[in-house]
């Protein structure tokens, strides 16, 4: 898990410099975000070439349009939203050729993975299976908000902006997803999980 809070000041400074045409700052932004972008992209598709393509286009356009970018825009949410739009557009184009033109058809896959310590290896593997089964039972939108909330640690407001939803929808989706996950987890397992995660 990342700690984004401490990054914020640094990001704002890099963003400012990049908008003034500083290529070193541009490269720093790339380095800081390419992994997060790739991770996010991988949730939508296994086609890594397509993801790379979209990330490249995203940064090229970013440079081209640097004069028009807003001051207050925080790069993290802006970049993820932009990648999402690009990727869904490309995936949709493909889909249209394959079947009918549904705009809201996309996939979003997440899986949890725990560090398997020697003491609890078997148990952790079981636990992992349970949580993954729970995640599998969620809708794609629920999986996506879970990812943005608990992996990327975005605020409800940013999640709403990235996914083009109302803030209330983002909040409700997280609430409902957590509820389902919780129902899939037996209480006894939950108690052990704590020991594992602290160890």
């Amino acid at each position: 898990m990342h700690t984004q809070v401490s990054r914020q000041g640094e990001d704002t400074r890099l963003w400012q410099l990049f908008r003034e045409g500083d290529r070193t700052a541009f490269t720093s932004l790339y380095n800081a975000y390419v992994q997060a972008l790739y991770n996010y992209g991988r949730r939508f598709t296994t086609d890594t070439a397509l993801i790379e393509d979209c990330i490249q286009d995203l940064f090229i356009d970013l440079w081209r349009k640097k004069d028009q970018l807003a001051d207050a825009d925080t790069p993290r949410y802006y970049l993820l939203k932009s990648l999402r739009n690009r990727l869904l557009r490309r995936l949709n184009q493909r889909q249209r050729f394959a079947s009918s033109g549904l705009t809201d058809e996309y996939d979003f896959q997440v899986e949890v993975s725990y560090e398997l310590t020697l003491v609890n290896e078997q148990w952790a593997a079981d636990q992992q299976r349970l949580v993954n089964r729970a995640l599998q039972s969620l809708s794609k939108r629920q999986r996506e908000v879970i990812y943005l909330k608990f992996y990327e640690n975005f605020s409800y407001e940013d999640i709403a902006r990235i996914m083009s939803l109302e803030v209330a929808s983002a909040y409700n989706l997280v609430s409902k997803a957590l509820d389902s996950v919780r129902r899939h987890l037996p209480a006894a397992y939950a108690a052990l999980l704590l020991i594992l995660l602290i160890a």
Partner: peptide
Amino acid sequence: RRLIQSLRIGTEPLSETQR
């Protein structure tokens, strides 16, 4: 706390070549 921590989503690192 446990509920949130149980959601440790796994990701694969980008290779140096890709980067």
